[in-house]
Design a protein around this nucleic acid. Structure first.
Lengths: 157, 157
DNA sequence: CCTTGAGTTGAAGTGCACTTCAACTCACAC
DNA sequence: GTGTGAGTTGAAGTGCACTTCAACTCAAGG
């Protein structure tokens, strides 16, 4: 019934490199039992955690926030489908927002392709929220700072 | 008619930190004339280049690729609206693809919230392209590697 | 028993996109 | 002329998400 996975097996199943799995463990995102010889053995439930981690990353959430989310899971029992649903749902608005922003960017880009602008005059690309008055002449570009959004910033890093 | 901008002015107008502008210059993304005292002076046209850079980053393009795109602009003359339109349009399919992926992720997440799964069985979240057969039992998770996409990997860095 | 592939560790390295720092110089208003 | 805020440089540092490495141990088949 335990049916534990080695790190190689979890890696193959999850598509996540062993080094990344060890890294996740260091950050407290997943956990493993150990054999007498100190090797990791993962419960099958860890597969779901890894799945959640990868999905969350696609939503643009940092590992730190993912850890916080995972910390909210009950420790006493194996998380239920409802537990996972709750966590997944918590990213929903973030995902919506990212989709909205990208869609707006696309439409604006279409408009600008039409008008050939990319200029600093009244183009919504350069004045996204129409909030530029009162800070001297000239419009601001795009988003003031991409610092916080890994999706858009490239660092995206 | 020249009407050159200092780095502080370009920074204020573009919303990009002076240190980032110098960094862009090192990478060959923008250029500046120099005063007798070695200070940078930017032609107004550089504002469009910076606008293009920030927009491109939001699309999820790396600075390296942005540089390549900018290199395709004519050197002899100031880029025309059509030049900028061509470059912007070149990101379009990428933007579409990113929007498509995120929308799919959202819908899948909705489905999984409904079914409460996040399991490794037949859930499209875990088997995005239905391309898992032939590599042993068990499904793969999500995307095999997030390595190449700064949008999804968490790095806009 | 022995080989071999898989696993272990901590420390260091990578790539990207910047930022910070120290030490110095410019440009401009008064 | 002088003070001050803005600008200059190269080198080093940052944050994130990992990967790589060297040196070593484990586990399982023959």
């Amino acid at each position: 019934m335990p049916d534990l996975l080695t790190i190689g097996e979890l890696s193959a199943r999850s598509g996540v490199a062993p080094s990344a799995l060890r890294y996740y463990e260091r950050l407290g995102l997943i956990r493993a039992d150990r054999t007498g010889g100190n090797q990791r053995r993962y419960a099958r439930a860890e597969l779901r955690r890894v799945a959640f981690i990868r999905i969350s990353q696609q939503v643009g959430v940092s590992l730190d926030e993912i850890r916080e989310a995972l910390d909210s899971l009950p420790e006493a029992r194996t998380p239920s489908p409802q537990d996972w649903a709750r966590l997944s749902a918590s990213w929903r608005s973030r995902l919506d927002e990212r989709i909205r922003l990208l869609t707006k960017l696309r439409d604006d880009l279409d408009g600008c392709i039409g008008c050939g602008c990319l200029s600093l005059q009244r183009c919504t690309l350069n004045n996204p929220e129409d909030t530029l008055a009162g800070e001297g002449p000239g419009a601001r570009l795009v988003l003031p700072r991409p610092t916080d959004d890994p999706t858009l910033a490239g660092s995206l890093s």
